[in-house]
Design a protein around this nucleic acid. Structure first.
Length: 159
DNA sequence: CCCTGATTCGC
DNA sequence: GCGAATCAGG
């Protein structure tokens, strides 16, 4: 049993990869798995799964180091492109590990319960977050933020 | 100011 | 190896 904190086990890593390939943001992935954003990113980096960056040389961080780091030129996934074009796809709406202890079924849902879907609809383990949700809000604090942030495209450049 | 992504550094 | 801190870009 859970005597230790198996931070990254095969299951976690699989989820991580799946969500990453799905085009989900590190924020979503982190929230889904239940770890910090940095943790997800860090693991991805170690797995060499980074989406690839254009900057190989960072500015003022070399305190004496001068290694030309060539990052992998991984092309963007079609998923992401499609998602951007269509605005919304049948994205795998997983996520909801913030507090799966309170997760409940559809019948158990209440006005003050988070309706965030857990797992894929139709699955035998399909359920909802069930956390305490603010009055009027369908999702809990954590999920509401994720739910209401699908478009993260340039988000209106303030100037 | 907010957020997200990626690298670096300490444990 | 993991994750916070940090940096960079939008």
């Amino acid at each position: 049993m859970p005597v230790l904190s198996p931070t990254w086990t095969d299951e976690r890593i699989e989820l991580l990869k799946q969500h990453f390939e799905a085009g989900l943001s590190c924020r979503e992935i982190a929230a889904d798995i239940g770890v910090s954003r940095n943790a997800v990113i860090g693991k991805l980096s170690r797995l060499n799964l980074t989406r690839g960056r254009t900057v190989d040389d960072r500015k003022g961080q070399d305190k004496g180091l001068a290694p030309a780091r060539m990052r992998k030129a991984v092309p963007r996934l079609q998923y992401e492109m499609l998602a951007t074009l269509y605005g919304e796809t049948d994205a795998p709406v997983l996520a909801g590990p913030i507090d799966e202890a309170n997760r409940c079924s559809l019948l158990e849902l209440s006005e003050n319960r988070c309706r965030w879907p857990i797992s894929t609809p139709g699955a035998d383990d399909f359920c909802f977050c069930g956390n305490m949700a603010p009055d009027g809000q369908p999702y809990c604090a954590g999920h509401s933020r994720l739910a209401y942030r699908p478009p993260m495209r340039t988000r209106a450049i303030r100037g």
